[in-house]
């Protein structure tokens, strides 16, 4: 049963991240996603500090707002100060991450967060934190949170498909049609930060990035259409979660780390496949 809960939670988180990450990859913003996932740390620490618990919704939103603020700071450096984009991203997220670690050390007694958890989360503890309705066991709390998050993201991706699609592939055309490029940009950014914050305790700050980027990138190699890419992303996300769980059990290591590793292995397989295909085509030609 425990295995099932963990795989299910891992898959739900991986699917949510993958769907959003597809748009990040297509918009050439993969590293912005990386930066957001690091930069929400101080927000999460402050949220723990003020609410004393993990579940409070206003605090989650507050922490996610910090992710959006990150993108604004990056743009400020890039556009106002004319600092090159890679350096703008690098300075911003390391600075905010450092603040986060300092806050953790400062309030070590009050905040139930340790540094290792920040890096790779504790998905193995998911089955231990159960939700009850009276006496009725409803299953792990994380499962409910992750499902709600996935529903929200599905809603955004399905209802906003046209807006996301057009602003991703052709911004000029989108704004000519009267679609607000800024609105979809910030909707995507705030969804990414919210997802990062929610996934945080399960998989940590850095492995979220693996879920955000690797399955979509793998899917992108195999598809020329956004819809195909999104379905393939879901497939690779689920495969990484299942494979990762069993790999972790096999060698007795971190489950989240193993999931990232498996997603990387899948990427390499697909990468190799595309190279062989290309060679074949060259020979036939």
């Amino acid at each position: 049963m425990e295995a099932l809960w963990i795989i299910l939670c891992g898959s739900l988180i991986a699917i949510s991240c993958g769907l959003l990450g597809s748009f990040l990859v297509l918009r050439k913003m993969a590293m912005v996603g990386d930066a957001i996932s690091h930069a929400v740390l101080p927000g999460i620490v402050l949220a723990y500090l003020f609410s004393g618990s993990r579940g409070s919704i206003p605090m989650l939103i507050g922490a996610a707002a910090l992710g959006v603020l990150t993108t604004i700071i990056i743009e400020l450096f890039y556009k106002k100060a004319k600092l090159q984009i890679d350096a703008s991203i690098g300075i911003t997220f390391t600075w905010l991450f450092a603040i986060g670690i300092i806050l953790i050390s400062l309030f070590a007694g009050q905040v139930d967060l340790d540094q290792d958890c920040v890096l790779y989360g504790e998905i193995a503890y998911v089955p231990l934190d159960l939700l009850y309705w009276g006496d009725l066991n409803l299953g792990p709390r994380t499962l409910w949170v992750a499902s709600a998050m996935l529903l929200l993201i599905l809603l955004i991706v399905i209802r906003g498909y046209k807006g996301l699609f057009l602003t991703t592939f052709n911004q000029e055309y989108a704004s000519a049609l009267g679609i607000s490029v800024g609105f979809w940009h910030y909707l995507l950014m705030s969804s990414v930060s919210l997802t990062t914050v929610i996934s945080f305790e399960s998989v940590g700050a850095i492995l979220v990035v693996a879920f955000l980027i690797v399955p979509p990138a793998t899917a992108y190699l195999l598809s020329n259409q956004l819809k195909h890419m999104l379905w393939l992303t879901v497939l690779f996300a689920v495969l990484s979660s299942i494979g990762g769980y069993f790999l972790a059990v096999l060698i007795n290591g971190s489950i989240a780390g193993a999931m990232a590793t498996v997603s990387g292995v899948l990427f390499c397989l697909v990468w190799g496949y595309t190279i062989i295909q290309k060679k074949k085509m060259m020979i036939e030609y």
């Binding site: 993969a30 492995l207 980027i213 060698i251 290591g253 989240a256 999931m259 990232a260």
Partner: peptide, 14 residues
């Protein structure tokens, strides 16, 4: 960069 960074780190953590 994102792929290599996160996968290598994941493998390292594992």
């Amino acid at each position: 960069i994102g792929i290599v960074l996160s996968v290598f780190f994941g493998a390292g953590i594992l």
